Computed example of a mutant assay.
Amino acid sequence: MKIRDAMTRDVCMVRPDQTIRDAAHMMAELDIGALPVQENDRLVGIITDRDIAVRAIAEGKSPDTQIREVMTAEIKYCYEDQDVEDVTRNMGDLRLRRLPVMNRDKRLVGILALGDLAREGSTQDDASEALCGISRPGGQHSQTAQRH
């Protein structure tokens, strides 16, 4: 199965000059945990509920802090024509719960989350494998304020 068959296509985005309050409100309204960040029609980062909690609130930042101050700028992504099995293995190795999905022109076309894989019967094993990798303790994405 290809990523395009499992991903979520309708992705809302934010700008880096918006506030983390804006991002948090949008996440609450949409019941999601991450938003891609775009600037000048290009993907420049991703902000997650975890970024807001660990990099902003835990550090005493204001709700009016701009997204660019706490977003993850080093973007990991996958391509829509890649195989789900390869991408989910990579998600486990990198300890990522979601990945932006790009076309070969490097334009955002969707997002792939563990929830997308868990709902699709044929990819549930891939979701389990990725979750096992993600759930390993420690590493780059542990409970620190350090950027990942």
Rank of each mutant, 00 (worst) to 15 (best):
G60F: 07
E74A: 14
I111R: 15
V11N: 09
V87A: 08
T72D: 10
Q66T: 11
T8Y: 04
I32N: 05
D10V: 09
G133Q: 02
R95Q: 15
P137K: 09
M102S: 09
N90Y: 11
L96Y: 04
D93G: 00
H25F: 14
Y77T: 10
R42M: 02
D5C: 04
Q143L: 05
K106R: 15
V87Y: 02
H25T: 08
R21Q: 13
V109P: 08
K2G: 00
D126P: 00
M71R: 07
S142C: 05
T8W: 04
Q146E: 12
D51T: 07
M7Y: 06
N40E: 14
R4W: 00
P100E: 05
L99Y: 07
L117D: 10
R9A: 14
I52T: 05
I20Y: 04
A58I: 06
N103L: 10
I3D: 03
I32F: 07
K76W: 05
D116E: 05
K61C: 09
Q124H: 11
I3T: 05
G33Y: 00
E80T: 09
I111T: 05
S62A: 08
H25E: 08
R107W: 04
I134C: 01
L94R: 12
T72W: 03
Q66M: 07
I32R: 06
R4E: 11
L114K: 10
S142D: 13
G138Y: 02
D81K: 09
G92F: 04
H25I: 15
K106A: 13
T88E: 13
H141G: 14
I75V: 15
C132R: 15
R89I: 08
I3K: 00
D125E: 15
M27K: 11
Q82L: 08
D125M: 13
D31L: 07
L35W: 10
Y77A: 15
L108D: 07
S62E: 15
A58L: 08
I52V: 14
D41Q: 12
D31Y: 06
V109E: 03
M27V: 06
K76P: 03
D22I: 09
I20M: 13
D126R: 06
G92S: 06
G92Q: 02
K61T: 09
A28I: 03
M13D: 00
A28M: 06
L94A: 11
T123R: 13
A6M: 07
A23E: 11
R68W: 07
E80S: 14
G121F: 11
